[in-house]
Structure formats: structure tokens, C-alpha cells
Design a protein around this nucleic acid. Structure first.
Length: 296
DNA sequence: GTCCAGGCTTCAA
DNA sequence: TTGAAGCATGGA
């Protein structure tokens, strides 16, 4: 169910929305905008208030807000509703994922707590760049660097710089934007992608294992970043990123007093949850970070 | 001042 | 294959 209304907007609204002139609503059943946007999978959106986020979408500044099952989209030009549904993964049946979560005693209550948490389908290049930046970093700083990149290369916060734009600069520019020792990693990867775009886009067509091999060839992409890129950028649902939070959670919930390595944690998650591994991981991550689990 | 953050690369054993 | 050192930066 989709309705589109394009009309001048009278603002008794927040300053961020003043220039919005197109408004659209989507029926989004079993969707929670807040847990989706706040669960560390995307860095380019600014939280305006609870259930209200602003960021670049489809090349323009866009505000997403939610009231019950209604997702409201405000922008200057009408956006493509199909693109919104795709971005928020709204057409995925969450039943198998909830079944995985509910079947697991250790995860009791997790699906109910974050009902409607979905994994975004982000641009693959942006996801690759962002998760290279994320290495040994924190969410706040990643967001700060994201803004520096957009402002520095594009002059606005609407779009993320292309690999070509970054490849045409140098690692020093990136370093000054706050990337620190990750600057040469992103620069080298941008050059590689810019030089062979077709190869990068081809990763979409590969299965998880083959795609993983390709992604791991990029500088600054190790086991964990690769899983993030595969899950958030290439939609590979078997991906299971293991960061410090997931490691702690898996260790505490399933490997008490047993030796565990990040690789073993990943293989455990993938074997246990299969095609739902990525979604289960997202619930685990958000649960761990928000204190749902007592894992510290 | 130390510790930590959605880790990776390099090098040695 | 595994383990350890080194790496930028800013907030807690």
C-alpha cells in the first residue's frame, strides 16, 4: 500500500524538514525504524528524534519517520517507493528469523524486544568504505569520518564519495579527514574498485563463499569487515560478522569456560543459524550493545 | 594517565 | 596456522 502526495509543506515541523516538499507513506508491517537505524549497520543518517532520521537517499536529502505501521518519507522530490522497500528490506518474511531466535533458549525475548529490526540493503561501495573505516573504531567516530568524507569530496551530506573521487586524491587527504592508519587502506581499495568497477559489481552475482573470497582481496578488509560488507552491501544473508560485542555474546551464551576464537564464533553462528545468520547477528549485536544481555 | 572502539597488516614461530 | 606487535584518534 503506497500513497504519494507532492505538495508545498507548511512547517510547524522541525528545522530539518522545512525544505521538504514531497511526502509519501508506505505501509511497513513488522518494521522498527529506530532499531534498524540504531543498530550499527549504517553511519550516514542523523537521528532527529525517536523514530525520525534524516540522510541522503536517492541523491537527495530525505527524512524517514515512523508512526505505527506507517513509514513516512519526506524529501524535496518524490522518491521511488520500490527503492525504499528495497533499502529497508521490507518485503522479507521475518518469520524464519524469529523462529530461529525463539527456538534458542539463550535468546529468549530478543525477537520480541527488537521486533521489526531489519537489515538495510546499502550501496556496496559505501558499505565497503564505511566498514574499512570501522576497524578498531567506534560508531561516533565512524559517523564523524563519514561526514568529513561526504563534505570534503561532495560538498554536502547527501551523497558518499565514489571510489573514483577518492582514487583521484591521495591517502594524505583521507588521513586529514580522521581516518588515521586506515587512510591507505581506503585509498588502495578505492583505486582497486575504480580501476575495475565491473569486477566489483559482479560480486552481487556470486554466492556467499565466492563473494567472500573477492571481498577479502581488498586492502583493510579482514574477516570481520568482509562479513559486514557481504551482509550490508551485498545482501549475503549467511554472513555473520564477529566484532567484540558478538564475540562476548557468543562466548558468554554458548562457550562458557571453552576456548573460542573469532573465526570459531563465526563458523558457529553460520552453522547454527544458516540463512538467518546475518539477521540473528544483528539482533545479538543490538541486544549486546543496549544491555539486553548481561555480557560485560 | 589508561582503556576502548563493529580490526587489519605484518612478521615471526 | 597461530600469536603478538603496531597502528590513529577521541571519548570515557
Amino acid at each position: 500500500m503506497t500513497s504519494i502526495a507532492s505538495h508545498p509543506r507548511v512547517s510547524g515541523d522541525r528545522a530539518a524538514l522545512i525544505s521538504a516538499s514531497a511526502e509519501m507513506t508506505l505501509h511497513a508491517e513488522l518494521f522498527d525504524l529506530e532499531s534498524t537505524m540504531d543498530s550499527g549497520q549504517v553511519f550516514g543518517f542523523r537521528k532527529i528524534s525517536a523514530q525520525c532520521y534524516e540522510g541522503g537517499f536517492g541523491g537527495q536529502r530525505t527524512v524517514f519517520s515512523q508512526e505505527g505501521p506507517v513509514l513516512r518519507i519526506r524529501s524535496e522530490e518524490p522518491v521511488d517507493p520500490a527503492a525504499v522497500r528495497r533499502f529497508f528490506d521490507l518485503d522479507r518474511d521475518l518469520d524464519p528469523i524469529h523462529a530461529c531466535l525463539d527456538a534458542d533458549e539463550s535468546l529468549a525475548g530478543l525477537s520480541a524486544r527488537f521486533r521489526g529490526l531489519r537489515i538495510l540493503k546499502q550501496d556496496a561501495w559505501e558499505a565497503t568504505a564505511c566498514f574499512i573505516i570501522s576497524a578498531n573504531n567506534n560508531v561516533k567516530r565512524i559517523q564523524h569520518i563519514w561526514r568529513n568524507l561526504c563534505q570534503g569530496y561532495c560538498g554536502s551530506l547527501i551523497s558518499f564519495p565514489t571510489p573514483e573521487a577518492i582514487a583521484a586524491s591521495n591517502a594524505g587527504v583521507l588521513r586529514r579527514m580522521g581516518l588515521g592508519y586506515r587512510a591507505p587502506y581506503l585509498f588502495e581499495t578505492a583505486k582497486a574498485v575504480a580501476q575495475n568497477r565491473a569486477s566489483f559489481e559482479e560480486i552481487h552475482t556470486l554466492d556467499y563463499a565466492s563473494a567472500r573470497g573477492r571481498v577479502l582481496e581488498f586492502k583493510g578488509v579482514g574477516d570481520k569487515v568482509a562479513e559486514c560488507v557481504l551482509l550490508y552491501g551485498f545482501g549475503k544473508q549467511e554472513a555473520f560478522p564477529v566484532d567484540v560485542w558478538i564475540f562476548r555474546a557468543i562466548k558468554k551464551l554458548y562457550f562458557r569456560r571453552r576456548r573460542l576464537t573469532p573465526k570459531k564464533a563465526r563458523e558457529f553462528g553460520q552453522k547454527r543459524w544458516g540463512a538467518s545468520a546475518g539477521y540473528v547477528q544483528q539482533h545479538l549485536f543490538h541486544g549486546a550493545r543496549t544491555g539486553f544481555f548481561d555480557i560485560i
